[in-house]
Each structure stands twice: as structure tokens, then as C-alpha cells.
Design a protein around this nucleic acid. Sequence first.
DNA 1: AAAGCGTGGTT
DNA 2: TAACCAAGCTT
Length: 292
Amino acid sequence: MTAHDDLHRRLLDWFAVEARDLPWRRDTSGWSVLVSEVMLQQTPVSRVLPVYEAWMRRWPTPAALAADSPGDAVRAWGRLGYPRRALRLHQAAVAITERHGGEVPDEHAALLALPGVGEYTAAAVASFAFGQRHAVMDTNVRRVFARVVEGQAFPAPSVTAAERAMATSLLPEHDAHRWAAATMELGAVVCSARSPRCDACPVADLCRWRAAGYPEHDGPPRRGQAWHGTDRQVRGRLMAVLRESEGPVPKAALDAAWEDAQQRERCLDSLVADGLVDPVGDGAYALPGHGP
DNA sequence: AAAGCGTGGTT
DNA sequence: TAACCAAGCTT
């Protein structure tokens, strides 16, 4: 019986009782898990739920999504944010249909090769859909390990080699996928960034951060993202106009979305370059249609 | 490898 | 209220 075994058992027992009943935990097919993971990138569960339900009803398989246009995906994405994720999920559906016979691949490397799938998402799908053993390191897991294991308030800005080695060494031999889900869940509902609920934590007495008296974060400043007046805000305005319209919109409709013409044009150009907007002629613009 | 990329709820 | 935060990825 090692210290790790104790940590594992407590978190797994806690998770068995406290796990939220989420739709992507009921339907753990590769497609369900992939869709949910992409939607959850930088986006809270509460906002993903309704979009996820509608999405899976409309496109129950990768082939179904691949058969519709990228613009349909972007419109269905609604206000989840980062609409390039919708584009990449559509591209992933096309790749899965063409290269993998319509089945979400179960190999980490094949998952990683899909558009919009990075290290975290590949590990998450391999774990949650296919029961494999991977270090799944999202913002929740990283914060939990930083606190419980390292005694620090927050992890480094990006994953370090040492951090990955530590997470890998903590992986249990069995039930690693459940361990991944449990540590994520703890970070999401108990060991939160702003106000951790240590009174409800199953491993509070093992936590080095707690034992050290909750020292403040001492690393490089955690940078927030500017918003007002940025290109991101302008791009969001332009996309909202296109999303809310059935078909193509005249340039004038986009011009009304932002005062500064130079910035507006730059953003429109960047959206076209990103494939999120199609110039359809006669000065009109639309969400991307089917390819040529 | 640092910076860009949406949106809205919480503090 | 401004700042922070949310199951990251890409270039």
C-alpha cells in the first residue's frame, strides 16, 4: 500500500459517488466524446450542454456532419465562442469519414492528427471513449496536481516536461481513465481556481498546498486576455451578423457591425483567410458553403 | 514559443 | 466594474 494507492482510492471512491451525470458520460462513443471535448475547450459545461444535445441529435455520426457544409457547423455552434473549433470539428468529421471508415480512431497518434485535436483532447478521447491509459492534463488536472502534489496555487503557464512526468508517474495501473475523469472532476467542482471548497475535498489532508498554508501564486503573472476593442471582439461581431442571417448578407450589414473601417476590413479579411467567411460575389458574404 | 483566438458568468 | 476564468489548439 503506497501513498499513491491511498490517493487513487480516495479520489476514485469520491468520484463514484459525486460524478456529475453528463451526457458524454452516458454515451461514451468516440464521436460523443470527441464532440464534447472540442466544445469544452475553454468553455464551461453549462454553456456546452444545450449545444451538444442539439448537435448530436442533428449529426449523430461523423459522416452526417461531413455531409453538411462547414457553414452549417459554424451556425449550429452558436455563441459557444472560438468558431474555428466548429470548422475544425467539421474537418475532423471529413477526415474520419475519408480516412477511418467513419469511425473515430482509437489510437492516440491518429486522434492527434485530426484537425482541432491536440495533446489534451487526444488523451481525453482515448481515455474516456476507449478506456486507455494516458496522462490527461487539462486545466483542472494541472491545478489539482499543482496544489495536492507540488504545494503551489497554480501550475506553470504551459505544461512542462517535469509536470508531464509527474502526471504519468501518478497514473494507476488500472482504471487510469477513471482516475483521469476523477481528477478533472475534482478540479472542476471542488478544487476550483478562485475559491476551492477544501471542506468537501476527499484528499484535503494529503494536500501540500493546504498543509503549507495556501501560499499565494509566485510564478509569472497569469495574463488575462484583452477584449474590448480587440480584433477578437470585431470578428465576433462580424460572425454574429452572419450567423443570425439565413443566407448571404450584403457588405453594408457587416459595415454596421463596427465603426472603425480599417479594423473592420482587416478582421473580415482574416475571417475569410481562416475559412470562416466566404465572399460570394456582388459584395455579399456568407458562412462557408460546401467546397468546390 | 508567445500570442491570437469568442463568449458570458462570477467575483 | 474590471478582471478573472472556463475539459486548448494553432502558428
